[in-house]
Every structure is written in C-alpha cells, then in structure tokens.
C-alpha cells in the first residue's frame, strides 16, 4: 500500500517536470508561428500599401471616366477597361456557372448511382473527377493557348469578348465544379431522405432542398471565379486581343484592367498610370474578397434561418 503511494508520488513529480518542459516547448513554437505570421502579413501590407500609395495619386474622377488614349504615350484614363472587365466577367460566368453547377450536380448526385452497375461508367466518372482536380492546377496560359487555337483561329471568333469568355470559362470551370461539389457534399443526407420520404422525386429533392442549402458554397465558387477573371492576363492576352476601345458586341476585342496594366507596364513609360490601374485592380480584388467573406458568413447563417 505504502509502496504504491510513493510510486504514484514519483509519477506525479515526473509529470509536473514534463509539463514545465512542454510549456516551454509550446511557447517557443507559438512565438515562431507569430513571427512567420507577422512576416507574411507585413509583406502583404507592403505590396498592397505600395501599390495603393503610388497608384492612389494617379487616381481621380477623370482617370476613372475617360478612355485610354492608346499609342505609346499611355495617356488617358481607364474607363473602357473597367467596362470591358465587367463585360468579360459577366459573359464568362454566364457560360461557366450553368455548366459547372450542372456538372457538379451530375457527378455528386447522379453519377454514383448510375455507375453502380457499369464498370465503364464508373471509370469514366473517376476520370472526370481526376480531370477536374488536375485542370484546377493548370497554368492559365495553357487555357489561353487552347482558347487561341480553338476559339480565335479554328472557330474564327477572332480576338473577341466571346473567345476570351469561352477560354475564361474553361479556366474557372474546375473552380466552380469543385466548390459546388463540396457544397453539395456538405448537405446532410437527412434532407435528401426527408424529401424523398415525402414523395418528392429526386429532381424535386435536388431543386427544392439540396440546391438552396448549397447556394452559399456555389456563390463562393462564383465569386472566386470573378476574382480569377479580373486578375488573369496571359489567357486574355491571346484571346481578347488588346483594343482599348469599348467593345460594342461580343465579337469585339477589348482590354481588361489587368491586361491594360500589362500593356502600360510593357509598352509605355506611363508608370504612374500603371500604378493607378494597379491600385484600382487591388481595390477590386479586396472588395471581392470581402464579398466572399460576407456571403459565406451571412448565407451560411441564412441557411440556418429561413430558406
């Protein structure tokens, strides 16, 4: 009895000693993580701050509302490039969203059940899933080359909003498919079972219960894609061309903000204008990220509330 209790006392002592050591170890690693965190944040702030400070001086109402003059001077504003950016974003998403959401719905909700019987279908589906994973990691210029070969030359759409939007849709499809897939997988099967048990068809179940419940995730994917289209250059360099005029139809060439920035930096000496354009771009990206944050937070809460 006594032996046992002295043994326990020894164990407790050893534990106390060890705990002290573990506390020191923890403090070290936490301090290190703080340091890394601070470095990362400082770099980000430095880059963004530099662009905003430098570019901020170039930004005024006139800069935002007049079109670029073109040529090598880099004179003029950025109004048409803002317009083109919006057009391209809209057109790209108009193409990519239904395709991506539909594909994800098929892969998650239908493919599994239809592949049960057929080895061939099953392997097709795993290939499709693998393709989506891989395509998400391919550099955008590859999509650009593909878009150039297919849309610009073979289909003769030329350098145009249409070519660029089609290529851009290929670029963002994996993102939309994956975020939608994740959103669908996150919908509890209880909802599906509950709906089917009430005598709803599978489509009604999807349309009325599963899709609304996964809307926040789907919207997050769409907003991520918006950010992607706004910030890419290479892919649009080879599909959209570089006209600084306002496109009047989807067959017209144009320049997004990012593309304009590229032209200014490479072909002109208008460094201040380039910085100004960069600042506008950065502000847009920041706004989009705030929007993602807002949407995923508010809408996720919204699903818990009404509809």
């Amino acid at each position: 009895m006594d032996e046992r209790s002295s043994e326990i006392a020894l164990i407790h002592k050893a534990q106390a000693l060890n705990l002290k050591k573990e506390h020191r170890r923890q403090s070290f690693w936490v301090a290190l993580m703080w340091l890394f965190g601070l470095i990362t944040v400082s770099i980000l702030i430095l880059v963004v701050g530099y662009v905003l400070l430098k570019g901020g001086t170039a930004i005024n109402w006139e800069f935002l509302t007049t079109p670029p003059k073109g040529g090598l001077s880099g004179e003029g504003g950025i109004s048409t490039t803002i317009g083109t950016t919006f057009y391209l974003v809209g057109l790209t998403l108009l193409i990519a969203t239904p395709l991506g959401v539909g594909a994800a719905m098929f892969l998650i909700e239908y493919a599994g059940e239809q592949s049960l019987g057929s080895k061939f279908l099953r392997s097709m589906i795993s290939i499709a899933n693998f393709a989506v994973e891989t395509l998400a990691g391919i550099p955008s210029i590859i999509y650009g080359l593909f878009g150039y070969a297919l849309f610009v030359s073979t289909l003769k759409f030329g350098f145009s909003l249409l070519s660029a939007a089609l290529a851009g849709a290929c670029l963002v499809l994996p993102t939309i498919i994956r975020t939608t897939e994740e959103a669908l997988l996150a919908v509890p099967d209880d909802y599906r079972r509950g709906s089917l048990a009430l005598g709803a068809t599978k489509w009604q179940t999807l349309y009325r219960v599963v899709l609304p419940a996964s809307t926040p995730g789907i919207i997050t994917g769409i907003i991520l894609s918006v950010g992607r289209v706004i910030s890419e250059t290479a892919i649009f360099y080879v599909t959209l061309g570089g006209s600084y005029r306002m496109p009047t139809s989807i067959m017209d060439s144009g320049r997004t903000l990012a593309l304009h920035l590229y032209y200014l930096a490479m072909d002109t000496r208008a460094f201040d204008k380039a910085m100004g354009t960069g600042a506008v771009l950065v502000v847009m990206i920041i706004l989009i990220n705030l929007l993602i944050d807002f949407v995923s937070r508010k809408l996720t809460a919204g699903v818990r509330r009404v509809r």
């Binding site: 048990a197 009325r208 419940a213 509809r307």
Partner: peptide
C-alpha cells in the same frame, strides 16, 4: 411514399420556414 409517410429517429426539418416545411409535401 406519398401514401406511406415516414418520421425519422432524428428530427430532420428542412432549412426552411415552418410553413415551407409543412407545405413541402403538398407543393411537390
């Protein structure tokens, strides 16, 4: 399933209003 209803062990309301939850079956 329209003729044979089911209540599950774990309550499984839809993420919709009470009204829409009840109206769900008639609507579909």
């Amino acid at each position: 399933r329209q003729n044979v209803g089911m209540v599950f062990q774990k309550p499984n309301p839809f993420p919709k209003s009470i009204f829409e939850n009840i109206a769900y079956g008639p609507r579909v």
